[in-house]
Each structure stands twice: as structure tokens, then as C-alpha cells.
Amino acid sequence: MDIAASILVAVMMASTPLLLAALGELITEKSGVLNLGVEGMMLVGAVCAFAVAHQSGNAYFGVIAGALAGVLLSALFAVLVLVLLTNQVATGLALTLFGLGLSALIGKNLVGQPIPRLPVLSIPGISDLPVIGPLLFGHDLLVYLSLALTFLAHRVITRTRLGLTLRAVGESPQVAHGLGLSVRRVQLMAILTGGALSGLGGAYLSLAYTPMWAENMTSGRGWIALALVVFGTWRPLRVLAGAYLFGAMTLAQLHLQGLGVPIPSQFLSMLPYLATVLVLVLMSRDAVRIKLNAPAALGKSFHPDR
């Protein structure tokens, strides 16, 4: 039981950055905007969080810096796609490339530097309980925050006026505009929220999961987060399940390598990405389900005068 609890704790840690980034992209896409720059925002969030934590000696300041870095980068994306009406796919890809270069530049002198790890929020007497203690009460702030935000997003999107407005803009911005809704404002807030969550996902990597900075340390997690939104059919609770499934696969390839399974390590390292491709192929076979769940205006630019 103790071994099982340890594995589940490790799965939760591996899944948290995926969940945060995927949840942010889900909110963005619900407004009808497709942002492929998740990988770049995660990297910039990770390096800014690490840099601030290193300079201040406080990991929580690093968390705030990571979220703000994601917001700033997503604000740049918002200006390009909402004001200048650039192509969302091309702009998102450019944002990822920009994030790759910017994070490498900022983190050039941070490789190998020590930082205070994001502390675990332990409860005296409860966190020490066998199995249940470490599983439920032995995590850091961002693990609990990712779960809380998932259920909050589910509630807001499905049960509130704000969620109805978000979905209306994503389905038909022209109709929403005709009803008096500020389409650009809704999309801007969704983009900034997605950027903040992507930045938090990157901050978790550099402050908690592997408390260090290394160039391109996200290793494609931003692209997996994009796939998780499709896998979860744009629903927060399904995205949560998908994130934990992919987190478990990421952890499995590490354990299989440690156990000396006679499979080339390169193939084991490919497992999470092979699973991503396989899931997308299987999902694409059911085109009706995708059309029913995907926002109808996803990826389409909107201008109130057109």
C-alpha cells in the first residue's frame, strides 16, 4: 500500500503541469481562440519563476512571477490576433518559437543554480498517516490549486452566466456581438487566463517537479496539453482524467527504464508522445463528436465591422 501511495503521489506530480496548461488552453479555446503557443508560455513561465525564486529566495514569489510571465506573453498573442487579426495558428507557432528563444536567453546563467523548492503543505499528525497522509495531504500548493481550478472551471463553464457568455462567444461571436456582448473583451480575458495557467504549469516544473532550470525543460508538455483539450472534448473533468492518464504514462516510462526492461530507452521515452498521436488518431475517427463538442468558431478571427 505504501508503494502504491508513492506511485500515485508521483503520478499527481507528473500530471500537474499538464493539467494546468491544458485547463488554460481549454478556457482559451472555449472563447473561440486557438493558441498554439502553450509550449512557449510554459517555458517562459518556468524560467521567470526560477529566476525570481533564485533571486528572492522565496518559491511563492516564483509562482507569481511564472503566472505573470504567462500573462504577458499571452497578452502579446492577444494583441496580434484580436487587434491586428493575424492568423491564430501561425501566431501561436511563432509564440512557441519566441518562448523557446526568450527562455534560453533569460536562463543562460541560471543552469545549475540552487533554488528553494516549493514547500509541501503538510498538516501535523495527518500528513504522517500511512497511505492517506502522503496521498491527500503531502503535496505543494500548485497540486491542490490545479484540482480546485479544474472543478471551478467545470462549475463556471456549465452552471454560470459567465460560462454561458464564454461558450456563446466561442460558438458564434457574430451572434454574441449582436446580443450586446463584448466579444473581444471575453476573448482577451480567456487568453490571459490561459496564459496565466500555462505560466503556472511551467513554474511547477522548475520549482517543484524538477527544481532546476534546463533549456527546453518542458520537453513537449505544451503540445501534450493541446492534445489533452481535444482528448477531453473541451470538458474540464475529462481533461483532468486525461492529464492523470498521460502523467501516469510519463512516469511509467521512467519506472520501466529503472527496472531494466529490455526495451530501448529511446522507445520508452517516446511513449507519452506516441500515446498523444494515438489518442488524436482515435479521436479524429469520430468527427461527429468533435464537431458537437468543439467551439464552432474555434480559430476564426472576429471583427465587429465585418
Rank of each mutant, 00 (worst) to 15 (best):
G99I: 03
V9W: 10
L192A: 11
P236Q: 15
A248L: 13
A176T: 03
P124G: 13
G107C: 10
A90V: 14
T91W: 01
L192Y: 06
Y144I: 00
S103Q: 04
P236G: 14
V38N: 08
V169N: 13
P295H: 08
V175Q: 10
L192E: 04
L118Q: 12
A241P: 05
G92C: 08
C48E: 04
M42E: 05
A10S: 14
V83R: 15
T91F: 06
V47W: 10
R235Y: 06
V33L: 06
T233Y: 15
R184C: 01
I224N: 00
Q55H: 12
V229M: 07
L200V: 03
S301K: 04
A78D: 02
T150H: 12
F77V: 03
G133P: 03
F61P: 00
G62D: 09
Q174C: 04
Q257H: 09
W213G: 03
I7D: 06
G125F: 10
W213T: 00
A294R: 15
F231T: 01
V186A: 11
N87S: 09
L226C: 06
S6P: 00
R161E: 06
V183M: 03
A5R: 05
A153S: 15
L282A: 14
L23V: 08
A5G: 06
A297Q: 01
L200K: 13
Y60R: 13
L95G: 02
L205H: 07
V11E: 04
A153C: 13
L197Q: 05
Q187I: 00
V156Y: 08
L274M: 15
L292P: 00
L145T: 11
S219W: 03
G24C: 07
A5E: 02
F98Y: 12
R159W: 11
L72M: 09
A10C: 02
L73E: 06
L188E: 04
S146R: 12
L73V: 12
H303F: 03
F61V: 02
S198I: 00
A214E: 10
Q253C: 12
G180Q: 08
C48I: 07
I263A: 12
G24R: 07
P262Y: 12
A75I: 00
A208E: 04
S182E: 07
V63A: 11
A22M: 01
L226A: 10
L149W: 07
L82A: 05
G133R: 08
V81H: 04
N35M: 08
V33Y: 06
P130S: 09
L164I: 07
K30L: 02
L298T: 02
T165K: 15
V156D: 04
A67C: 10
A297N: 01
F137Y: 15
H255D: 02
T233D: 13
M212H: 13
G258Q: 14
A148W: 07
A287W: 09
G299E: 02
L141I: 10
A22P: 01
R306G: 01
E171V: 03
T193F: 09
L240H: 14
S74P: 09
V63F: 12
S182K: 14
I115G: 10
V239H: 14
M249W: 09
T96R: 09
F267W: 08
Y244R: 06
A241K: 05
A208C: 07
G133I: 01
L259N: 01
V71E: 02
L164Q: 13
L26C: 08
R167L: 03
M217I: 01
S6N: 14
M217Y: 05
A69E: 03
R117Q: 12
P17K: 11
W223S: 03
